[in-house]
């Protein structure tokens, strides 16, 4: 399986994401510049964390118009897995691939520490390796992760089981509905503020993120068993 890590000017978790795939998962991965329009050769698209375009205007607002985003939209339409982490999640929200928006954290501070998450939906291509309701520890590192959406959107997300991860025990940033990660209706575009790529090896302190990448791989293999 071949993964693309999209690199925007100001991305800074691209290297972590690359190593999570290459070393922890053992799959093929390439850095892909934000200028590249054609992403058709990749089986999965990863939008890493960081501060694309300096977070100017709004987090993710400018990256959303980068050339690579037309390829990301196309991959999403084709049903390929698209994962946006932290700034990548913000880009997915700005692009409209996922509903809602991010505000500054409730306490106006940049928060960088491990948090507990509850796996609310373990029946997605990103979470099938987790147990139902499993509580996992994954680091967060953001200043604008305060998820906001209107009542109608929140209701739809809940009814369709699109809230994949919620903060567990405490809500660090003020997110509506304790939302930490959501998926699109079709189930192939996941955005999350916590960093699974920073929790894939004992030496990093946590390994709970590994199952997310293993889920993507397993589901891809199962759906491609006849063709490859």
């Amino acid at each position: 399986m071949k993964y693309a890590v999209i690199v925007f000017p100001g991305s800074n978790c691209d290297v972590d994401m690359y190593h999570a795939i290459k070393d922890a998962l053992g799959e093929e991965v390439e850095y892909v510049s934000h200028t590249e329009k054609d992403l058709s050769e990749y089986d999965a698209i990863l939008l890493p964390g960081g501060f694309s375009y300096g977070d100017y205007l709004r987090s993710g607002a400018i990256a959303r118009f980068a050339n690579a985003m037309s390829g990301v939209m196309k991959a999403a339409e084709e049903g390929k897995p698209v994962l946006g982490v932290c700034n990548g999640f913000q880009v997915l929200l700005e692009s409209g691939l996922l509903p809602g928006a991010m505000k500054r954290n409730r306490d106006l501070k940049f928060i960088c520490r491990p948090v507990n998450l509850k796996v609310e939906n373990h029946e997605t291509m990103f979470t099938s390796e987790y147990e139902k309701g499993e509580v996992i520890t994954i680091p967060i590192a953001h200043g604008e992760g305060n998820y906001e959406c209107n009542d109608k959107t929140l209701k739809e997300l809940e009814e369709n089981n699109q809230i994949v991860f919620r903060y567990h025990g405490e809500n660090p940033n003020g997110s509506r509905g304790d939302v930490a990660g959501i998926i699109n209706e079709r189930g192939n575009v996941l955005g999350m503020m916590p960093h699974p790529e920073r929790a894939v090896d004992e030496i990093l302190g946590h390994t709970d993120g590994l199952k997310l990448f293993q889920s993507i791989l397993k589901n891809w293999r199962e759906s491609h068993v006849c063709t490859s």
Binding site: L57, R58, A61, I62, P99, G100, A101, C149
Partner: peptide, 8 residues
Amino acid sequence: RLLANPVI
């Protein structure tokens, strides 16, 4: 399209 985010 860009200067404001109509969601919020």
